[in-house]
Amino acid sequence: MISPAARDALQNWLSQQRALKGAAENTLTAYQGDVADFLAFMTVHKGDAQGLGALSKITISDMRSWMAQTRAGDVGPRSMARKLSSVKAFYRWLSEREGFEPTAVLSTRSPKFTKKLPRPLAVDAAKALLDCVEIQSDRPWVSARDVAVLTLLWGCGLRISEALGLRGADAPLPEVLRIVGKGGKERVVPVLPAAQAAVAEYLRLCPHMQSDDAPLFRGIRGGALGARAIAQVMADARMQLGLPATATPHAMRHSFATHLLDAGGDLRAIQELLGHASLSTTQAYTAVDTARLMDVYNKAHPKAG
């Protein structure tokens, strides 16, 4: 059992992350689970509920025991690294507040893992996927809805949560959308005519009454459409087309970035369109191979002539 003092400290830290740093709810949920699991382990490991004084005395050996037990629970190195990052962030805050030295926790090394590059779809595969989705449902309005959502992911680079977060007041879609993304960061996204047309067709066929404050995209019964439903639509389409398991809704956003770069788009501009805080994240999205980079270099560099 986690001590009341430790539980209160965790809640206070989460509140600060929400208020001062604008952390997304999904991030806060992950933080809470990671740190609560860590505190629960230490309670069992030490044989007593860990108050704030005890938490300040955790050793490198204790940290190794926690990591070993967590990894034994079939947690991969990537997830382990995330959990350790959550615990370190909490400890940084707690040590400043309580005035103790957090070296044992902060010096714990994260497990090494190979960072997987996202796999965008080829242009013809993305087009085939939309064509397949268009005829997948026996309800024409549902097919139009699914095409509209996926067109927003591929054509505007929206996250699935951003597309599903659109409201009735956003329709008809303007030439540019103001999107509030992760951490409350706002960005301006141009809307392609194809995306405007896809959403207009969905709204023409949708049987559910639209209102400004209601979700733009609806489920069968009229409630908000969930991300899981779109993931299933993609899964069904990729099976029919023989596409790999990496062909997910998020892969359409990856494809948006890669296809823009392939067409000569500027990496910094694409970073803005995606709403990435770091250019390195954008570089990972735009899975550009070395051969293409060398081709650009040879054509553009003044010494290459």
Rank of each mutant, 00 (worst) to 15 (best):
A6W: 14
L274G: 01
R7F: 15
G53R: 11
M294G: 01
W93N: 01
I220M: 03
G219T: 13
F41T: 02
P172H: 08
V233Y: 08
D74P: 00
S65W: 04
L166H: 08
D266H: 10
L241D: 04
C156E: 14
I2S: 06
R145F: 00
T27Q: 08
A81M: 09
V288D: 02
L173V: 06
T70F: 05
T286I: 13
T290P: 00
K46F: 03
A19I: 15
P244S: 14
A277D: 09
T70Q: 10
R145Q: 09
S61K: 15
K21M: 12
S86Q: 15
A198D: 10
R145A: 01
R292C: 06
D74N: 12
R221A: 03
A68Q: 04
R238Y: 04
S278I: 06
V147E: 06
D295R: 15
A214Q: 09
A104K: 12
D212F: 06
R268I: 11
A122R: 13
G76K: 11
G183T: 05
L293T: 05
L129S: 06
G168F: 08
N12G: 14
A54I: 12
D48S: 13
I179D: 09
A40E: 15
N12Q: 15
L274E: 04
V189D: 05
K185P: 01
E98L: 15
K185L: 13
R145Y: 03
A200I: 06
K88A: 02
Q17S: 08
S110N: 11
L216E: 12
A245I: 04
V87P: 00
G51I: 10
L94A: 13
V105I: 15
P193E: 09
Y297C: 02
M1S: 07
L10G: 00
P172D: 08
A235N: 13
H254L: 13
R145G: 00
A122W: 13
P207T: 06
M234Y: 03
P193K: 07
S161M: 03
P302H: 14
S85M: 14
M63H: 04
G264I: 09
Q240Y: 02
G275P: 00
S280D: 14
R187P: 00
D48W: 13
G242Q: 13
H301R: 07
S211M: 14
D289N: 14
G47H: 11
P118G: 02
P118V: 05
L84T: 01
F38M: 09
L130H: 04
A30R: 06
A171R: 06
L152H: 02
R187L: 14
D34R: 12
Y31C: 02
R167Y: 11
I270M: 05
S137I: 08
R18Q: 09
P118E: 05
A229Y: 01
F217E: 11
L166R: 02
R78Y: 05
G226A: 11
M209R: 11
I270K: 02
D131F: 06
P207C: 10
P193S: 08
P244K: 14
T246N: 07
C132N: 15
R139W: 07
T108D: 02
